[in-house]
Nucleic acid binder design. Structure first.
Lengths: 368, 368
DNA sequence: GGCTCCGGTGAATCTCGCC
DNA sequence: AGGCGAGATTCACCGGAGC
């Protein structure tokens, strides 16, 4: 762990803070966590979960149910924790919030109003939802998660290749199918009852954290409950900070997380995207003699050709410029990836120049 | 049609009103329509051009009607049309609104603020969404629909048994899977281009109207576009009132609806009986238009025939029920596999309906 | 006629780092 | 902070052409 400095104050990593989540978040340094996962109370009628701005409890349910008063109270509650969450998040950080139709529209609107930039809404499709017993509506078989960056310009983390690989080689969609948390995964309290009414499945957090964090990142969960976020973060080599008001939940979560064995470093490595690999200038291929100045390149479709010049640019048909510029000019396209566009001949075969770039990158890896 | 009285003023049934939807709705009598389906502008806020990896350009939704100065301006627009919608809706009426993450949270919050009572949020899962071409986010593969009654105490319409029957004997869930509107269903304008950038699939409206209206009900669509709501309502024996500002859309919608052949009365009756529980929803074949309500099926031996109803059940010779029940009744057998028993005609040939089920299963496999 | 191949396209808030 | 240039990036389906 780095020594505390004014620039990098100590974070209570891998611990569970007690008390109100707003106060706890405000006790953390600003711009300090990479990701927030928030599973706030859904049910507008669970008034015990709600607090007024002055932190007093909202009155208990009485005979006269005023839904507008309750919506207002819920909005206040949302504004308070979301403001604190915004403050503690790094500029390039992101937030996930999960909810149902009771609260998610208010949460989503608040996120936008506060300047968060929505990246996706993701639907958790439950394979085994609770049926609608009265037969008066559709079976409520999903919940909604909103993924948003701190601002429109945030450079948020998204492990595209990892998600694509996990989805059999095609892009991961915005609908995720998982069963509810049941069986042995479902935590029991000392009385043998289910410990928490809305414990989320670890599979959900697993995908979410692999998608939008990197190993070593700090994940904050202001409504920690029985600590699913902490358990999965620990397993995946991410740090967590939990906040939970209820002593019983904190206790259960701590015991649960203590049993988690982190995955080995090797298992945590995800498919690297090409974007993350070091840049190799085309000129280096010429400098190293992998390609000769004067040698001719052809487009993959065989329709165009160009000559390599000593400075690593191409020329042909009156066009000069980088491998990308000449390719784009030939194709009349706004842009072109010259690395995959151009080919050269070796031993009678047509080979993409990208294979030469890959050779250089492999050498660079070996040197580390 | 009933004679106009002070209690039941004349409604412009089965017509398309022109002009601004707020003014048009305010010109209608209050408390007069059974259902509203609203597909308002999404306020996409697209920035620049987007190209596919093959350098072709994506045809963006950059129409003037989707441009708003700010979130505040969009909220103002939403408040205005929603207030007018609330007024024109019967006390026991309901509303559907469809949107994406750009606007749906604001729409949902506005619905709640105005006293609408959310019954479900429904996810339209697209089997064939547009990919995320830059690999920067999850593929945006769904849209969200909110179903809400006018007030908490509204006695809204929900054809539970029809939905259950269409879902092959188990409760209909809140996630609906349909392809985008493409191919011949997609309307073209006089110039041969797609007539409207956001035409919704008829299958979506089919399920929605069967679920939450009865034959003879009045369905209002304040953002009529090319009239999918009117076409499906007409086919299903519901009245529609459309409102559309653009002359070209009104013209195309009118031509489209004029071609619709309403289903026979018998095909429209919704199921009230319980059914056995088979595995793959026959109703989906109807919703998707693979089989047409009113179309005749014949038994493989050619001795029996039955007609398809809009909710995915069959009727004939005084028998009503699932494909299995009707087959069993005809054969005097205790049970019958309707999937292999029933056949339909395509291009002069007799084809088992099981081939259609297989098509859907193939899609489902591909989606997981 | 049937099959394969190929081009087109869909409500999309769709790059990043250096100078 | 804005401009510039490198270079990374797509899935399911429909329909027409061609064989």
């Amino acid at each position: 762990m780095a020594r505390p400095t004014p620039e990098a104050p100590v974070l209570p990593l891998d611990t569970i803070m007690s008390g109100d989540c707003v106060a706890a978040m405000n006790a953390l340094p600003e711009n300090s966590v990479d990701l927030i996962f928030a599973d706030p109370p859904y049910n507008l009628q669970l008034r015990g979960e709600l607090h007024r701005p002055d932190n007093s409890m909202v009155d208990a349910v009485d005979d006269h149910w005023d839904q507008f008063e309750s919506l207002k109270a819920y909005d206040h509650f949302t504004d308070r924790w979301m403001k604190a969450a915004h403050r503690v998040l790094k500029p390039d950080g992101a937030i996930w919030v999960i909810g149902s139709y009771h609260n998610i529209f208010r949460v989503g609107a608040s996120l936008q109003d506060r300047g968060f930039w929505i990246l996706n809404d993701v639907v958790w499709r439950k394979t085994n939802p609770m049926p609608n017993f009265r037969g008066k509506r559709l079976t409520n078989a999903h919940e909604t998660m909103i993924w948003a960056s701190k601002s429109e310009s945030s450079k948020y983390t998204f492990n595209y290749e990892a998600m694509k690989a996990a989805n059999d080689g095609v892009q991961m969609r915005s609908d995720w199918t998982f069963p509810l948390c049941t069986g042995h995964e479902r935590l029991k309290n000392a009385r043998g009852e289910k410990a928490h009414p809305t414990q989320k499945p670890e599979a959900l957090l697993h995908r979410l954290l692999v998608a939008t964090t990197n190993p070593g990142d700090v994940v904050l969960d202001p409504f920690f409950g029985t600590g699913t976020t902490g358990a999965v973060a620990t397993m995946l080599g991410r740090h967590f900070i939990g906040i939970e008001r209820e002593e019983e939940y904190r206790q259960l979560a701590a015991e649960r997380i203590a049993k988690v064995r982190p995955l080995e470093r090797e298992a945590l490595e995800t498919t690297t995207s090409k974007r993350a690999e070091p840049r190799v200038p085309f000129g280096q291929l010429v400098e190293r003699g992998m390609l000769r100045p004067g040698e001719e390149l052809r487009s993959g479709n065989g329709r165009h050709r160009a000559k390599i010049r000593a400075d690593g640019t191409l020329t042909g048909d009156g066009v000069k410029g980088s491998i990308h510029q000449v390719g784009a000019a030939y194709e009349g396209a706004p842009s072109c990836n010259g690395w995959t566009y151009w080919h050269f001949r070796r031993e009678g075969k047509s080979v993409s120049i990208d294979t030469l770039r890959q050779q250089i990158r492999d050498e660079m890896v070996k040197m580390n």
